[in-house]
Design a protein around this nucleic acid. Sequence first.
RNA 1: UGGGGGCUCGUCCAACGGCAGGACAGCAGACUCUGGAUCUGUUGAUAGGGGUUCGAAUCCUCUGCCCCCAGCCA
Length: 561
Amino acid sequence: MTDQTQESSNFILDAVREDLESGRFNYVRTRFPPEPNGYLHIGHAKAICIDFETAQAFGGTTNLRFDDTNPVKEDVEYVEAIKEDIRWLGFDWGDREFYASDYFEQLYEFAVQLIKKGKAYVCHLSPDEIREYRGTLTEPGRESPYRNRTVEENLELFERMRKGEFPEGACVLRAKIDMASGNINMRDPVMYRIIHAPHHRTGNKWCIYPMYDFAHGQCDSIEGITHSLCDLAYEDHRPLYEWFIRELGIFPSRQIEFARLNLTYTILSKRFLKQLVEEGHVRGWDDPRMPTLRGMRRRGYTPEAIRKFISMVGVSKKESVVDVALLESAVRDDLNLRAPRVMGVIDPVKLIITNYPVGQVEELEAINNPEDPAAGSRKVPFSRELYIERDDFREEPPPKYYRLAPGREVRLRWGYIIKCVNYVKDPQTGLVSEIHCTYDPETRGGYAPDGRKVQGTIHWVSAPHALDAEVRWYDRLFTVPNPNQPEEGKTFLDYLNPESMKIIKGCKVEKSLGNAKPGDRFQFERKGFFCVDPDTTDSLLVFNLTVTLRDTWAKIEQKLK
RNA sequence: UGGGGGCUCGUCCAACGGCAGGACAGCAGACUCUGGAUCUGUUGAUAGGGGUUCGAAUCCUCUGCCCCCAGCCA
């Protein structure tokens, strides 16, 4: 019992604990800092969980801070979407919602402070020249000719930058650090650049904007963030993060980096996801095949399942690719406990019970969720004509197949035991078009009073009562585990799975689904978990396949081949 | 040939000088009115060499491999 709840620790939690014990900090505050330039995906969910849960573990709080320092890439549309997704995931930042742009004035003052200390200067080198002066990975850079201007001159120039006296690209403010540093980030990094573009929050108030490096750490510090948890990509930036804080003499937030999430059979790069949407490879940011939180939500994944998955993945500094099967397992595990069961026939074939009275209808009782007695039961209509799954009947059953076949018995879930006496084929297509069975009236509810064993149980719907439905059957978006590493001459697009979505029309589902609402989740017995899509109309139910059930028979059948 | 990181079952994560463990996946079985769920069992790993130590995945050292950094993006 207790081993089950064993507290899962990780290197970040360890570090925070040490900081508290050593007195480096006496409280914990983290932040989740998205740039409002796109939609959140499962990779962000990892960061969100780590940020919020690390703070929670020590009774601390987490700020939501939009890193809006580049007006040309950002939009309010995204801030609303991001907030919505974080809330959906189940995290609450209370009133601690901030924007880097809230601190533009303060940041400007910090810059002035550094200029006065002789630690920053205005540089007129062009972008190309800056790159050239920066040196290479193996050669040191050279100092800018503008590096040793007087404080007064720098102060004046920087003020004129702010006033808009220069066009974009004319000059930048740089930190004066070390052009020979092995760490390229320390070779006089740009602190401010000129962008004559309106900002989604500050409008036209500013035309100079701080770079990430000059904004992030200072914002952390201003907000009293103790632990600034971020991507491994920023490891190289930590010396700079600490340099600014030290030179400014402000609150010393601590940056700790962890490995970002990668998942098999998908991509999590914002740029590539955008390409999928814009080139029409998927139907939008909320396409159920997308690894975005909106996509997963529409697909039917629950926030609980996603959080569970993130906790199962763990936290480390090792770059890794997590098997998407782990995610699917978390989703099944969660849905298994909460999704009501219903009967839905994806690929229907007509079944006629020849000895059942024409016109007779019975209401049979079906349990809603065997995992949850509180879910109760419902009545499902039964009649002479049913639909069953085409795959649940074989003219010539393979070994170990224990569904319906000529002369064989099978149980209709919650119904009767039936026996196949005949079947008819469509001469045109060669497909079975009708299956004729007799039922055993003694077996109502599925129980055999004589104790005879009936191995197979199949799902069904009453033909005259069934509702029409469209099912969108999803598979992996890509055909290979790691589309991020294409072969020579290929791109991730070459690995798109052409069968990632199959639209199946003509499905038949039980009557009780008539009042299902978009977002409702069900288990179609023996098939999988499905979620009602917002495309559903009064006349047509549309379901998304969330995830299939484990299919042992499919494995057996595979082996037989 | 600069700087910063990383290498433990197929995958992800533990083990913090003391029996290499868990989850997912796989395999085998039990049970079952979902070939679901559940339960049981099981396969399977410390990158390599040297050293310290009673004892090393863990400490030291050498080697190898992988990732990141040369935006006026974040």
